[in-house]
Protein backbone atom coordinates (compact mmCIF):
# COMPACT_ATOMS: atom_id res chain seq x y z
CA UNK A 1 0.00 0.00 0.00
CA UNK A 2 1.65 3.22 -1.13
CA UNK A 3 1.32 6.19 1.09
CA UNK A 4 -0.11 9.29 -0.54
CA UNK A 5 1.53 11.82 1.71
CA UNK A 6 4.20 13.70 -0.28
CA UNK A 7 6.75 13.51 2.52
CA UNK A 8 6.26 9.78 2.89
CA UNK A 9 6.68 9.37 -0.88
CA UNK A 10 9.87 11.33 -0.73
CA UNK A 11 11.14 9.11 2.04
CA UNK A 12 10.25 6.12 -0.08
CA UNK A 13 12.23 7.40 -3.04
CA UNK A 14 15.15 8.18 -0.79
CA UNK A 15 15.13 4.69 0.67
CA UNK A 16 14.74 2.76 -2.56
CA UNK A 17 16.88 4.68 -5.03
CA UNK A 18 19.06 7.34 -3.49
CA UNK A 19 20.34 5.34 -0.52
CA UNK A 20 21.62 2.37 -2.54
CA UNK A 21 23.29 4.79 -4.92
CA UNK A 22 25.09 6.48 -2.03
CA UNK A 23 26.03 3.12 -0.62
CA UNK A 24 27.47 2.18 -3.97
CA UNK A 25 29.55 5.34 -4.08
CA UNK A 26 30.69 4.74 -0.51
CA UNK A 27 31.69 1.21 -1.38
CA UNK A 28 33.78 2.39 -4.28
CA UNK A 29 35.40 5.05 -2.09
CA UNK A 30 36.07 2.48 0.62
CA UNK A 31 37.55 0.08 -1.90
CA UNK A 32 39.73 2.80 -3.39
CA UNK A 33 40.95 3.88 0.05
CA UNK A 34 41.74 0.29 0.91
CA UNK A 35 43.60 -0.18 -2.36
CA UNK A 36 45.48 3.02 -1.75
CA UNK A 37 46.41 2.08 1.80
CA UNK A 38 47.45 -1.37 0.58
CA UNK A 39 49.60 0.31 -2.02
CA UNK A 40 51.21 2.56 0.59
CA UNK A 41 51.53 0.16 3.48
CA UNK A 42 51.35 -3.27 1.86
CA UNK A 43 48.61 -5.82 2.41
CA UNK A 44 50.29 -7.39 5.40
CA UNK A 45 50.74 -4.14 7.30
CA UNK A 46 48.64 -5.26 10.28
CA UNK A 47 50.69 -8.46 10.49
CA UNK A 48 53.85 -6.41 10.49
CA UNK A 49 52.55 -4.21 13.27
CA UNK A 50 51.55 -7.30 15.26
CA UNK A 51 55.03 -8.66 14.80
CA UNK A 52 56.31 -5.39 16.22
CA UNK A 53 53.94 -5.60 19.19
CA UNK A 54 55.20 -9.10 19.98
CA UNK A 55 58.86 -8.30 19.39
CA UNK A 56 59.51 -6.77 22.79
CA UNK A 57 56.86 -8.54 24.84
CA UNK A 58 59.31 -10.96 26.40
CA UNK A 59 61.33 -8.02 27.68
CA UNK A 60 58.28 -6.44 29.31
CA UNK A 61 58.29 -3.75 26.61
CA UNK A 62 61.20 -2.22 24.77
CA UNK A 63 63.67 -1.01 27.41
CA UNK A 64 64.42 2.03 25.26
CA UNK A 65 60.79 3.10 25.00
CA UNK A 66 59.65 2.12 21.51
CA UNK A 67 55.86 2.35 21.52
CA UNK A 68 54.36 0.13 18.76
CA UNK A 69 51.22 2.28 18.43
CA UNK A 70 53.17 5.50 17.96
CA UNK A 71 55.53 3.72 15.59
CA UNK A 72 52.56 2.44 13.59
CA UNK A 73 51.23 5.98 13.18
CA UNK A 74 54.64 7.27 12.18
CA UNK A 75 55.13 4.55 9.56
CA UNK A 76 51.66 5.24 8.16
CA UNK A 77 52.56 8.88 7.55
CA UNK A 78 56.04 7.98 6.36
CA UNK A 79 54.70 5.46 3.86
CA UNK A 80 53.29 8.33 1.79
CA UNK A 81 56.78 9.77 1.39
CA UNK A 82 58.32 6.35 0.98
CA UNK A 83 56.04 5.11 -1.83
CA UNK A 84 54.61 8.21 -3.50
CA UNK A 85 56.78 11.18 -2.82
CA UNK A 86 60.23 9.62 -3.12
CA UNK A 87 59.11 6.39 -4.88
CA UNK A 88 61.80 4.50 -2.98
CA UNK A 89 63.40 1.50 -4.58
CA UNK A 90 65.42 -0.84 -2.36
CA UNK A 91 68.13 -3.19 -3.59
CA UNK A 92 69.85 -5.99 -1.72
CA UNK A 93 67.40 -6.22 1.19
CA UNK A 94 68.46 -9.87 1.51
CA UNK A 95 71.89 -8.67 2.65
CA UNK A 96 70.46 -7.45 5.95
CA UNK A 97 71.17 -10.24 8.47
CA UNK A 98 68.47 -11.65 10.71
CA UNK A 99 70.49 -10.98 13.82
CA UNK A 100 72.15 -7.77 14.90
CA UNK A 101 73.91 -5.57 12.38
CA UNK A 102 75.32 -2.09 12.04
CA UNK A 103 73.91 -0.29 9.02
CA UNK A 104 76.46 2.28 7.90
CA UNK A 105 75.13 4.80 5.41
CA UNK A 106 76.03 8.03 3.66
CA UNK A 107 74.28 10.98 5.29
CA UNK A 108 72.81 13.80 3.25
CA UNK A 109 69.85 16.02 2.53
CA UNK A 110 70.08 18.80 5.18
CA UNK A 111 67.37 17.12 7.30
CA UNK A 112 67.61 13.41 8.19
CA UNK A 113 64.92 12.10 5.85
CA UNK A 114 67.40 9.48 4.64
CA UNK A 115 67.30 7.78 8.05
CA UNK A 116 63.50 7.78 8.11
CA UNK A 117 63.25 6.30 4.61
CA UNK A 118 65.81 3.59 5.41
CA UNK A 119 63.64 2.85 8.44
CA UNK A 120 60.41 2.62 6.46
CA UNK A 121 62.03 0.52 3.73
CA UNK A 122 63.19 -2.07 6.26
CA UNK A 123 59.87 -2.09 8.09
CA UNK A 124 57.59 -2.18 5.03
CA UNK A 125 59.67 -3.97 2.41
CA UNK A 126 61.83 -6.40 4.34
CA UNK A 127 60.47 -9.76 5.50
CA UNK A 128 60.27 -10.23 8.41
CA UNK A 129 59.91 -6.52 9.19
CA UNK A 130 62.90 -4.94 10.88
CA UNK A 131 62.98 -1.99 13.22
CA UNK A 132 65.83 0.39 12.55
CA UNK A 133 67.25 2.08 15.61
CA UNK A 134 69.19 5.25 15.01
CA UNK A 135 70.85 7.57 17.45
CA UNK A 136 69.81 11.14 18.01
CA UNK A 137 71.82 14.11 19.19
CA UNK A 138 71.84 14.92 22.90
CA UNK A 139 70.47 18.41 22.32
CA UNK A 140 67.37 16.97 20.61
CA UNK A 141 66.48 15.23 23.87
CA UNK A 142 65.82 18.57 25.54
CA UNK A 143 63.19 19.54 22.95
CA UNK A 144 59.63 18.91 24.14
CA UNK A 145 57.46 16.68 21.92
CA UNK A 146 60.33 15.93 19.53
CA UNK A 147 62.25 14.02 22.19
CA UNK A 148 59.16 12.05 23.18
CA UNK A 149 58.32 11.31 19.56
CA UNK A 150 61.83 10.13 18.67
CA UNK A 151 61.91 7.99 21.78
CA UNK A 152 58.57 6.32 21.04
CA UNK A 153 59.49 5.49 17.46
CA UNK A 154 62.58 3.72 18.73
CA UNK A 155 65.38 6.26 18.42
CA UNK A 156 67.88 6.50 21.24
CA UNK A 157 70.34 9.03 22.61
CA UNK A 158 73.70 8.77 20.88
CA UNK A 159 75.98 7.37 23.56
CA UNK A 160 78.16 4.26 23.16
CA UNK A 161 76.47 2.39 26.04
CA UNK A 162 73.11 2.60 24.29
CA UNK A 163 74.58 1.36 21.01
CA UNK A 164 76.19 -1.62 22.74
CA UNK A 165 73.00 -2.52 24.55
CA UNK A 166 70.91 -2.34 21.38
CA UNK A 167 73.31 -4.65 19.57
CA UNK A 168 73.19 -7.08 22.48
CA UNK A 169 69.41 -7.10 21.99
CA UNK A 170 70.04 -8.14 18.35
CA UNK A 171 68.71 -4.89 16.96
CA UNK A 172 69.57 -3.19 13.70
CA UNK A 173 71.52 -0.05 14.42
CA UNK A 174 71.80 2.67 11.79
CA UNK A 175 74.79 4.98 11.98
CA UNK A 176 75.93 7.86 9.84
CA UNK A 177 79.67 8.12 10.52
CA UNK A 178 79.84 11.40 8.58
CA UNK A 179 77.46 13.03 11.06
CA UNK A 180 76.79 16.72 10.53
CA UNK A 181 79.65 16.92 8.00
CA UNK A 182 77.60 14.69 5.72
CA UNK A 183 74.06 15.91 6.17
CA UNK A 184 74.90 19.60 5.84
CA UNK A 185 77.34 19.44 2.96
CA UNK A 186 76.74 21.82 0.04
CA UNK A 187 75.27 20.67 -3.27
CA UNK A 188 78.65 20.86 -5.01
CA UNK A 189 79.94 18.03 -2.79
CA UNK A 190 77.02 15.64 -3.37
CA UNK A 191 77.93 11.95 -3.28
CA UNK A 192 81.41 12.74 -1.98
CA UNK A 193 81.72 10.99 1.36
CA UNK A 194 83.04 13.22 4.12
CA UNK A 195 85.35 12.09 6.95
CA UNK A 196 84.10 9.04 8.82
CA UNK A 197 84.16 8.84 12.60
CA UNK A 198 85.86 5.79 14.12
CA UNK A 199 83.37 5.00 16.89
CA UNK A 200 81.24 2.62 14.85
CA UNK A 201 84.22 0.43 13.96
CA UNK A 202 85.29 0.10 17.58
CA UNK A 203 81.72 -0.85 18.44
CA UNK A 204 81.48 -3.42 15.64
CA UNK A 205 84.74 -5.13 16.61
CA UNK A 206 83.91 -5.08 20.30
CA UNK A 207 80.50 -6.68 19.83
CA UNK A 208 81.38 -8.86 16.83
CA UNK A 209 78.69 -7.19 14.75
CA UNK A 210 78.67 -7.33 10.94
CA UNK A 211 78.61 -4.01 9.12
CA UNK A 212 76.10 -3.60 6.29
CA UNK A 213 77.21 -0.77 3.98
CA UNK A 214 74.24 1.25 2.77
CA UNK A 215 74.24 3.70 -0.15
CA UNK A 216 71.36 6.16 -0.40
CA UNK A 217 70.95 7.79 -3.79
CA UNK A 218 68.48 10.62 -4.25
CA UNK A 219 68.61 12.27 -0.86
CA UNK A 220 71.68 14.29 -1.76
CA UNK A 221 69.66 16.40 -4.21
CA UNK A 222 66.49 16.92 -2.16
CA UNK A 223 67.59 20.34 -0.86
CA UNK A 224 70.07 22.40 -2.81
CA UNK A 225 72.48 23.84 -0.30
CA UNK A 226 74.71 26.60 -1.67
CA UNK A 227 76.92 26.76 1.41
CA UNK A 228 76.91 26.88 5.19
CA UNK A 229 77.01 30.03 7.28
CA UNK A 230 79.29 29.05 10.11
CA UNK A 231 78.89 32.25 12.10
CA UNK A 232 75.08 31.92 12.02
CA UNK A 233 75.26 28.32 13.21
CA UNK A 234 77.57 29.33 16.01
CA UNK A 235 75.36 32.26 17.01
CA UNK A 236 72.26 30.06 17.13
CA UNK A 237 74.01 27.13 18.77
CA UNK A 238 72.92 24.71 16.06
CA UNK A 239 75.15 22.24 14.19
CA UNK A 240 74.93 23.97 10.79
CA UNK A 241 73.16 26.82 9.03
CA UNK A 242 72.75 25.81 5.37
CA UNK A 243 71.74 28.35 2.68
CA UNK A 244 68.88 26.73 0.79
CA UNK A 245 67.22 29.27 -1.55
CA UNK A 246 64.42 26.89 -2.56
CA UNK A 247 62.66 27.37 0.79
CA UNK A 248 61.79 30.94 -0.29
CA UNK A 249 59.66 29.59 -3.14
CA UNK A 250 56.12 28.61 -2.06
CA UNK A 251 56.14 24.86 -1.56
CA UNK A 252 59.92 24.79 -1.70
CA UNK A 253 60.05 24.05 2.02
CA UNK A 254 59.30 20.45 1.11
CA UNK A 255 62.25 18.52 -0.28
CA UNK A 256 62.43 18.05 -4.04
CA UNK A 257 60.64 14.80 -4.94
CA UNK A 258 63.78 13.05 -6.11
CA UNK A 259 63.68 9.28 -6.52
CA UNK A 260 65.28 7.45 -3.61
CA UNK A 261 67.33 4.36 -4.33
CA UNK A 262 68.69 2.46 -1.37
CA UNK A 263 71.40 -0.16 -1.87
CA UNK A 264 72.18 -2.63 0.93
CA UNK A 265 75.61 -4.16 0.41
CA UNK A 266 76.94 -7.50 1.58
CA UNK A 267 77.86 -7.58 5.28
CA UNK A 268 81.49 -6.83 6.14
CA UNK A 269 83.06 -8.45 9.17
CA UNK A 270 86.03 -7.05 11.03
CA UNK A 271 88.17 -8.72 13.64
CA UNK A 272 91.00 -7.47 15.78
CA UNK A 273 91.33 -5.58 19.00
CA UNK A 274 88.78 -2.81 19.62
CA UNK A 275 91.41 -1.04 21.72
CA UNK A 276 93.78 -0.79 18.74
CA UNK A 277 95.33 2.54 17.84
CA UNK A 278 93.25 4.93 15.81
CA UNK A 279 95.53 4.41 12.82
CA UNK A 280 94.72 0.69 12.73
CA UNK A 281 91.00 1.40 13.05
CA UNK A 282 91.19 4.12 10.43
CA UNK A 283 92.35 1.58 7.84
CA UNK A 284 89.33 -0.58 8.53
CA UNK A 285 87.01 2.41 8.46
CA UNK A 286 88.56 3.40 5.13
CA UNK A 287 87.53 0.02 3.70
CA UNK A 288 83.89 0.61 4.71
CA UNK A 289 83.95 4.15 3.37
CA UNK A 290 85.46 2.99 0.07
CA UNK A 291 82.85 0.26 -0.19
CA UNK A 292 80.00 2.78 0.20
CA UNK A 293 81.66 5.22 -2.22
CA UNK A 294 81.94 2.42 -4.82
CA UNK A 295 78.28 1.53 -4.34
CA UNK A 296 77.35 5.19 -4.79
CA UNK A 297 79.47 5.58 -7.91
CA UNK A 298 78.06 2.44 -9.47
CA UNK A 299 74.51 3.52 -8.66
CA UNK A 300 75.05 7.01 -10.08
CA UNK A 301 76.52 5.60 -13.29
CA UNK A 302 73.43 3.48 -13.90
CA UNK A 303 70.89 6.02 -12.67
CA UNK A 304 68.24 6.75 -15.28
CA UNK A 305 67.27 10.13 -13.91
CA UNK A 306 66.98 12.31 -10.86
CA UNK A 307 63.20 12.01 -10.63
CA UNK A 308 62.49 8.76 -12.46
Amino acid sequence: MRSSHPLARLADVAKTTTLPWFEGVLDVVRKKTEDFSNFLLGEDFEERVNWLRNRYDTLGGDPFGLDPEVAKGAVTVLSFFHRLYFRTESFGLENVPEQRALLVANHSGQIPIDGAIIGSSLFLDHSPPRVVRAMIEKWAVSLPFASTFFNKVGQVVGVPENARRLLEMNELLLVFPEGVRGISKPFSQRYQLQDFGLGFMRLAIETGTPIVPVAVVGAEEQYINLGNLEWAARALGIPAFPVVPQILVPGGQLPLPTKYRIYYGEPLRFGGDPADDDTVLRDKVWLVKQCIQDMLNRALATRTGLFV
Partner: peptide, 9 residues
Protein backbone atom coordinates in the same frame (compact mmCIF):
# COMPACT_ATOMS: atom_id res chain seq x y z
CA UNK B 1 70.28 14.37 32.19
CA UNK B 2 69.53 14.69 28.49
CA UNK B 3 72.74 12.87 27.61
CA UNK B 4 72.29 9.97 30.02
CA UNK B 5 72.69 6.46 28.71
CA UNK B 6 69.38 4.63 28.96
CA UNK B 7 70.75 2.41 31.74
CA UNK B 8 73.57 3.66 33.94
CA UNK B 9 76.01 1.25 35.49
Amino acid sequence: RAGNAQFLT
